[in-house]
Design a protein around this nucleic acid. Structure first.
Length: 713
RNA sequence: GCGGGCUUAGCUCAGUUGGUAGAGCACUCGAUUUACACUCGAAUGGUCGGGGGUUCAAGUCCCUCAGCCCGCACCA
């Protein structure tokens, strides 16, 4: 027996050595698996944002995925776990701009597009390196030879091709539409990048001719010349749709037109409102329905335009009260409600207050029938596979949330006015337009210009399951590994990403991107709070791994964690599983010490056969749990078996047997103990890969690596 | 407004197809030159949120009420 078993298990000494050995073995690459006969099993790692370091949520995801991958590899599948990172366009640019502003006091305009992008690339290179090291530290058995980045050459080809295919199918169009404008980030953002914040503000009632209208935003009201009410509201029966009347307004009299529209809620306020189509989604839709024009009031920096006369050039925040003062002086203020509760839309990344604007942007039409896909729309292509069960979401109640989101989906604005990211692959020269590929030759010299905008980061992430396999080329990898098996991610990302991958794969390949979506919850601190910088309650995965070992961290993230449910994590919990790793170590010490030179083929006594059968039953049960994604149950059953059965009962009862004078009983028990230990190591390997592999290597009769041993059936 | 989740031991949470209520941690008592520096044994601890129903049988299925949490939509 190796002397090392006389000391407690030391993960720090073991883990990096073993990871290196695994990596050098080539087994992370499914092409090199010697006994894989059951076909492929594929997971694409959700690429962490290249904005910094991994947090506990990433480690949770990596662990769950690696447990599945290692299980399938042991079962004899060609297991592919493909790693990568995400350029996270807007998040990364915001992060680097912030650093530059803090350290050098410069803005992106001081640097210029080229220099800013260069600085971001530099930052991203460093982040990606850190992330690679961190992923390795968790023990994730991913195939580094296939590593991908959402913003490298290969992915850029895929993005350009997707754009072209969608453009040719008439799904991508450019148009003047109302979008979410972030004045702080100076870019449009999608509906999903908005965070709503509750706010208490004033709600003003103004006299508008014979009506009283309510608003929380007086500064948008300069151009309001349409007054809208519900067609069936008896209070306003005398007014007909299209009637005009002259009303005294902020900067003098204007001609107002009556509009009847059923979207007005008669119960709200006075049941009458004026509309500002340029700066409100709902108003824009009303204006579109009735063919009304719109006038921009606020510019892209949040300042009032010349239409505001004396207020022109003022920031909306400063102008608001002054406008109210003027209206009051004219006797047009009816009343002011001081306690109006509403929500304001802010940009997730910059915190800027969203100002809806009508801008010329690129959109994806989600309702248009697609000829190449049986005249189904993107919405239908997204709904269908989940409805039919071709894709199953765990936990399954999330399918309702998914349907609800898709049913409310509007056309997706994909262009962004930031500089970091895939550039819109559209080139123009006069009336000519090229989409997808740049015009041949030196197009700049030939007078072509490329669209200035970049694409929403989720446009490229949507291709993750197939662009990582070489699409648009018809590669052997694509044929072999797509559709992938499992997509494992945080439930927060269901809409952002999972839905977009289904959209892209369904459109581009006409097939689903994955069969199972496993959604994990948030990792919270011991009191149930979210990890946050301001609270300082974060747990750094690397610190935890250094302190307790990756195995302890992994299994503590798996046991007691059901899909879709947030978990509370404390150091005490992880410490308990560090003890468990050491328990395995000592079980091994006892067994190896007491079975030296044993005949492994000795005939077994009846009670020993029963012990083998009992473990075989647990193995069958654990296999069922693993296949049904009940990882938490499988892990707990093995923990209970190892500690309460093998260590506490079987080893204790073996002591007198081994010291006894019945040679057949001794031989039988020795062979049995060795057998039980090896099977337990295989079963536990997906959860605790390091300590089990380290022990496996120390058992004389084992050959090769545990990571490619055979799962007991 | 629409939808979803949670409520089980002091704490954190499991509980698969309805079949004798579980684990870890904490606490109490005891053992220990021991495979175990990270050990073992025992004990304590539950009206499974309240009420009703289905069933031979309900933590589990149905209805209802309450508290907590989350998502989506609207907010002129």
């Amino acid at each position: 027996m190796d002397e090392k078993f006389k000391k407690p298990y030391d993960p720090a000494e073991t883990e990096s050595r073993l990871y290196k050995a695994w990596e050098e073995s080539g087994y992370f690459n499914p092409d090199n698996l010697p006994n894989a006969t059951k076909g492929t099993f594929t997971i694409m790692m959700p690429p962490p944002n290249a904005t910094g370091v991994l947090h506990m949520g990433h480690m949770l995801g990596c662990t769950i995925q690696d447990v599945m991958i290692r299980f399938r590899r042991l079962q004899g599948y060609e297991a592919l776990f493909l790693p990568g990172t995400d350029h996270a366009a807007i998040a990364t640019q915001a992060r680097v701009e912030k650093d530059i502003s803090k350290n050098e006091g410069k803005s992106r305009h001081d640097l210029g597009r080229e220099e800013l992008v260069r600085r971001i690339d530099e930052f991203v290179e460093g982040s990606r390196d850190t992330i690679r090291k961190q992923i390795r530290a968790t023990g994730a058995s991913c195939d580094w030879s296939r590593e991908a980045f959402t913003f490298d050459e290969a992915r850029n080809r895929a993005v350009n091709r997707m754009f072209k295919d969608m453009y040719d199918a008439g799904l991508i169009y450019k148009g003047l539409r109302i979008v979410n404008w972030d004045p702080k980030g100076q870019t449009t953002i999608s509906d999903d990048e908005i965070v709503y914040e509750d706010e208490k503000t004033k709600f003003y009632y103004f006299k508008y001719g014979p009506f009283t209208i309510g608003t929380a935003r007086p500064e948008t009201k300069f151009g309001d010349k349409h007054v809208v009410m519900h067609p069936d509201d008896p209070r306003y029966k005398e007014y007909k749709h299209g009637d005009t009347l002259t009303v005294e307004w902020i900067n003098g009299p204007i001609e107002a037109t009556i509009i009847k529209d059923a979207s007005v809620d008669p119960e709200f306020g006075t049941g009458v409102m004026t509309i500002t189509p340029s700066h409100s989604q709902v108003d824009f839709e009303i204006a579109e329905r009735h063919g009304l024009g719109s006038t921009q009031i606020i510019d892209l920096y949040g300042k009032l335009l010349p239409i505001a006369d004396e207020f022109a050039g003022m920031k909306i925040k400063d102008a608001r009260e002054k406008i109210v003062e003027k209206l009051a002086a004219k006797g047009l203020v009816d009343k002011i409600d001081e306690n109006y509760q509403h929500r304001i839309a802010t940009a997730e990344r910059t915190g800027g207050i969203i100002e809806p604007q009508i801008l010329n942007q690129w959109f994806i039409d989600v309702n248009k029938p697609i000829k190449e896909r049986g005249n189904k729309s993107l919405k239908e292509l997204m709904l269908e596979p989940v409805r039919s069960g071709a894709i199953s979401i765990l936990p399954d109640h999330y399918d309702k949330t998914y349907y609800h989101w898709i049913e409310n989906l509007r056309d997706w604005c994909i262009s962004r006015q930031i500089w970091y990211g895939h550039r819109v692959p559209v080139w123009t020269r006069g009336e000519e337009t090229m989409v997808g590929d740049a015009p041949s030759g030196d197009w700049k010299a030939d007078g072509w210009t490329q669209d200035e905008d970049t694409l929403d980061t989720w446009f490229s992430s949507g291709s993750w399951t197939f662009s990582t396999l070489g699409w648009p080329d018809e590669t052997p990898d694509l044929a072999r590994f797509h559709p992938t098996d499992v997509l494992e991610t945080a439930y927060e990302i269901l809409f952002f990403w999972v839905a977009r991958m289904i959209l892209m794969s369904q459109f581009v390949l006409g097939e689903i991107p994955f069969k199972t979506v496993y959604l994990h919850g948030l990792v919270r601190d011991a009191q149930g709070r979210k990890f946050s910088k301001s609270l300082g309650n974060g747990i750094d995965p690397i610190e935890i791994i250094n302190k307790f070992g990756a195995d302890a961290a992994r299994i503590s993230l798996v046991i007691g964690n059901t899909p879709g449910t947030d978990m509370k994590l404390s150091e005490d919990r992880i410490k308990g599983y560090k003890h468990f790793a050491n328990k395995l170590w000592n079980i091994t010490r006892f067994i190896l010490e007491n079975t030296e030179g044993a005949d492994l083929n000795a005939p077994l006594m009846e009670n020993d056969m029963a012990l083998k059968a009992a473990l075989a039953e647990i193995a069958a049960d654990v296999t069922k749990d693993m296949e049904a994604y009940r990882l938490y149950l499988a892990a707990d059953k093995l923990y209970q078996y190892a500690w309460s059965e093998l260590a506490a009962n079987i080893i204790e009862e073996s002591k007198p047997i081994l010291a006894g004078d019945n040679p057949e009983a001794v031989a039988s028990r020795k062979a049995t103990l060795r057998h039980l230990l090896k099977d337990l190591l295989i079963l536990l390997h997906p959860f605790m890969p390091f300590v089990t592999e380290e022990i496996w290597q120390s058992i004389p009769e084992t050959e090769g690596m545990l990571m490619v041993a055979q799962w007991p059936n």
